[in-house]
Design a binder for these strands. Structure first.
Lengths: 337, 337
DNA sequence: CTGTTAGCGCTTTCAT
DNA sequence: ATGAAAGCGCTAACAG
């Protein structure tokens, strides 16, 4: 079922059929109707491969994310998929598990598919071979979540957000605030969040303390140890976590250590995954507009594509974050101070 | 950078280059080396659109799922994406929000992209216009999660699973077991799960009771009412939910009604989303191999594609489920009986 | 084992 | 406003 059948059916040339679809105004109304009718009758759908081959535009976007098992990225992908679909674009998602080798592999897979552009979240924008390759190939791209002065990014200001959170906790009366994260070296975002935490702690003349947890089992020994110590004076009254999944683990570890959240310990996450509000206690978090980050990335990229230029680092977008002060966060009770 | 450049560089014809890539054994070792070297030097990647146009095979799969905001489907997509990538296939995911209009729209988008096959989860396989269209178009497809005698499906036996769960609850001493679901008419899977529940309740001479909740706010009035009633004799001792997300809401509603889980009320979900094990209490659930369902669907579909035939309903796969008896489920305490 | 060549379905000059 | 025809990059006969 090709353009040829439609042309025959409508009694016109294939060029006219093509025009009727791609530049309707350049075709006489009567002809247009005839073509449309013929196409509908035959159930004709233009062949994208042929169109791509001819125009060198695929109307397809590559999407490279760390994992879909973290709801944050699932939400982001939902936003990307929605925005892309609205614009008539398809997406090809690939996941990397935070591994550079997989990032490069993803790029290779996508390069053959001649995607018009990519949206990606890399482990560390500064030292990313993937981004270097991308620049070299001069393919338009937008980074989601990453923040870097030399790349086009859509993100929130995690450093400021974290500093605000710590300030707010201090204001509530918290003094011993522990930060928990995965391996800092594995994520430039975690590093930024830590900077915000450390700066705010220093500003308040409190001691910063970081606990890096291996991302393996459910109730990490280290955390239990740190929380379970008999010495109430040294136990933190609040845990700020570099992401929501980690915060969940912390809440569970706290419960296992016999601590109540938030009575004995406040736990705050980062990301604002939708699920957090469904829990009990609901998860306090610095919420990012995850779907929004996805949508805006697509919108920006498509806008650039339309004008034939690549997104520029200087036009990077910082979206607003929000402190979600939910049930897992509150002022420390007297007994814990 | 096309096959022509490589041919020139290697001093052979374009046909030889093509063969060197697609049937290396049919080319002299020396020639092969020359071609490979030339390709590497030029950074050549075969153009998929051209190949697709010529061969009518895109090495791309369409994936149609209800939503990515439910972790179950995010896990499924992760499995699909992994298996597809391993086989050198790309996927184009589309979401439908359980709406038939969007299912049809998805099909339209995919038809132009000439995907080799599709994997989909539809709201109701029995009355699905989408599946009808798919059959008419003779495109190979596999349903994930849906179960239907006339379609090729990869799923677990939700009816049996639910019956087993209810039997186990009865064995633990539960008598007043309430089932909670979304609108039954919206999902053939929920219907199957309900059948299993009803049958098992009847077998135990207990009264089946279904609460259909609108999928809108976080702590549905109806549920609170049903749980909060002063009359302890009529309050259920266990809630079986048609999915994990709903179970989460139930746990939250229970807490708001002043009930402890599992001391006062057991809550069991269905799906086995990974996040459930991270909560406190951890979520008991009938767990399905979500990533596995995705992977197996891809494997089956690709296998059929290789042999040039479409998956047949008769070869449908039922994967094993498992009762995850975690913290949110236990025998009723004396005071609640 | 290798080369020549005809299209896959579409868009886009260039004529008319 | 419409048609004729070239060609996007590749594969698969076919010929040698």
């Amino acid at each position: 079922m090709s353009i040829i059948n439609v042309a025959r059916q409508a009694g016109v040339s294939i060029a006219t059929v093509s025009r009727a679809f791609n530049a309707p105004e350049s075709v006489a109304p009567a002809t247009r109707t005839a073509v449309t009718a013929a196409a509908a009758e035959l159930g004709y759908e233009p062949n994208l491969s042929a169109r791509t081959l001819r125009t060198q535009r695929s109307r397809t976007l590559g999407v490279v994310l760390p994992t879909l098992l973290n709801p944050v990225f699932a939400e982001t992908l939902a936003g990307i998929a929605g925005a892309a679909a609205d614009a008539g674009y398809s997406i090809i998602p690939l996941t990397t598990d935070y591994r550079e080798a997989q990032e490069l592999q993803a790029l290779r897979l996508l390069s053959g598919r001649s995607v018009d552009g990519l949206i990606l979240t890399v482990a560390d924008a500064e030292r990313s071979a993937t981004l270097a390759a991308l620049k070299r190939a001069r393919r338009p791209y937008v980074l989601a979540y990453n923040r870097h002065p030399r790349h086009p990014c859509v993100s929130v200001d995690g450093e400021t957000a974290m500093a605000e959170l710590v300030a707010r906790l201090q204001q509530l009366g918290h003094r011993r605030i522990l930060m928990v994260s995965g391996h800092l070296s594995a994520s430039d975002r975690a590093q930024q969040r830590y900077r915000g935490y450390a700066a705010a702690m220093q500003a308040a003349h409190s001691a910063a303390e970081l606990l890096e947890l291996p991302f393996i089992d459910n109730a990490p020994e280290q955390l239990l140890q740190r929380l379970g110590g008999a010495d109430r004076q040294h136990r933190p009254t609040a845990l700020v976590c570099s992401n929501d999944l980690l915060a969940l683990r912390c809440m569970r570890a706290a419960a296992l250590a016999g601590l109540r959240v938030p009575e004995d310990l406040s736990v705050i996450g980062f990301d604002g995954m939708a699920l957090g509000t469904e829990l009990r206690p609901s998860l306090a978090s610095i919420s990012q507009p995850n779907e929004g980050i996805g949508r805006r990335s697509v919108a920006w990229l498509l806008d650039c594509l339309d004008r034939g230029k690549a997104p520029r680092a200087a036009d990077s977008l910082t979206l607003p974050h929000q402190l979600r002060e939910l049930e897992s966060m509150r002022a420390p009770s007297c007994s814990t101070l």
